[in-house]
Design a protein around this nucleic acid. Structure first.
Lengths: 168, 168
DNA sequence: CCTTAACTTCACAAATTTCTGAAAGAAGCG
DNA sequence: CGCTTCTTTCAGAAATTTGTGAAGTTAAGG
C-alpha cells in the first residue's frame, strides 16, 4: 500500500472515493462496449484534478502493469479520447483528457457510422433497390445519413451552450 | 447446401449476395460493440424480404444451432430491436424488424446514457463539486444531459423527414 | 390426455480475449 | 557515447466469452 505523492497540490483526496467512481464509471463504459482497461484508465483521468496522469500514476492507482497502461493508452489515443504529452526534459509521458476534445471523439463514432453506411449501400445494390429488402436497407441508410448531419449540428449547438454555461 | 423454400414468393434471391451483406453488416455492428450472434441475426432479418424469419430459417441461413438463435433473439428482443410474433395456430415463432421501431431502439441507448449520468452525478458529489475533477465531471454530465434532450428532438425531426421521403 | 413440434435452458468444450513478466527499444543526462 | 529511466512489444498463462449438444419445457393437435 504505497501512496505516491504525485501532485504538489495540498489537499489530499480520498483515494477510495476516487476509486469507487472510477470503477463504477468504467463499468458503464464496458457495458457500452469499451474494453475494460481503456475504460478504467479513462475514468482515472477524468477523475484526476489535473486532468492528466503519468503512466506510473495510472499503474499505481489502478493496480495494473505498465504493459496494461501502454495498451489502454494506445487505444484511447487512437480514438482521440486522450492525448499524450511529454513533459519537456523527461522520459515521463503524461496522458490527458482534453476537456472538450474528448466528447467530440465520443460523437466521432462518425467513422463507425460511415462504415455502416457503406455496408448498407452495398446491400442496397446487391439485393436490388426495387426489392422489399432493398427498400428496407435504403431506408435504414437514409436514417444514418440523417443522423450524421444532425449530430454535426448538435455539436455546434453544444459548443455554444457550453460557452454560455462554463465560460472560458 | 440445402436451400429452404421458405417464402411463397416467386423470385429467388441470390443467397450468396444476401450472406455477403449479412456478414459484412454484422461485422460492423460487432466492431461497435454488439455480440456476434445478435448482430448476424439482426442482419439476416434486415436483409429478408418479409422483414421477418422463423427460428428454423435463421438457423439454416446462418448455420447456427437453435440454441444460438434463441440466445441472439432473446437479446435483440430485450433491447427492442426485433419483436417476436407467433403465427396463430402454430408453434413456430417469427422474429421481425419493425421498420421504424428498431432505430428508435438504436437511439435508445438512453438507458445507457442514464446510467452514465448516474455514475457522473455520484462522482461530482463524492469528489466535491468545487474541485477541479468535480467540475470536469459536472461538465461531462451537462454534456450528456444536453445530448439526451437533443436526441429526442432529433428523432422527432426524423419521423417527419421519413414521412415525407417514404410515405406510409 | 397423449404425442409431437418447437423453443429454451444448462453444462461444458473450444476459441478468444485480456493481462502479465520479461526483454527490447527510445531518449534524456552526465 | 554510455548509463539510466521510462515505455513498448511479445509470448504465453489465466480468465472470460461463445456456441453447441442434450435434456427440459411448453403448447398445438389428434
Amino acid at each position: 500500500m504505497v501512496r505516491i505523492m504525485a501532485e504538489p497540490s495540498g489537499t489530499a483526496r480520498d483515494p477510495e472515493a476516487v476509486s469507487r467512481f472510477v470503477e463504477h464509471f468504467a463499468a458503464q463504459l464496458v457495458e457500452a462496449g469499451m474494453q475494460r482497461m481503456p475504460a478504467r484508465v479513462f475514468g482515472a483521468l477524468l477523475a484526476s484534478d489535473a486532468g492528466a496522469l503519468t503512466s506510473a500514476q495510472l499503474g499505481e492507482q489502478l493496480q495494473i502493469s505498465p504493459a496494461a497502461v501502454s495498451g489502454a493508452v494506445r487505444y484511447l489515443a487512437q480514438v482521440h479520447m486522450v492525448s499524450r504529452e511529454r513533459e519537456p526534459g523527461s522520459r515521463r509521458e503524461r496522458y490527458r483528457v482534453h476537456g472538450d476534445q474528448w466528447y467530440e471523439a465520443l460523437t466521432n463514432r462518425e467513422a463507425v457510422i460511415k462504415r455502416w453506411e457503406d455496408a448498407l449501400r452495398e446491400g442496397v445494390t446487391s439485393l436490388g433497390a426495387d426489392t422489399p429488402a432493398g427498400r428496407r436497407l435504403a431506408e435504414t441508410l437514409a436514417f444514418f445519413e440523417f443522423v450524421e448531419k444532425e449530430v454535426e449540428a448538435m455539436m455546434e449547438r453544444w459548443r455554444v451552450h457550453r460557452e454560455k454555461r462554463f465560460g472560458q
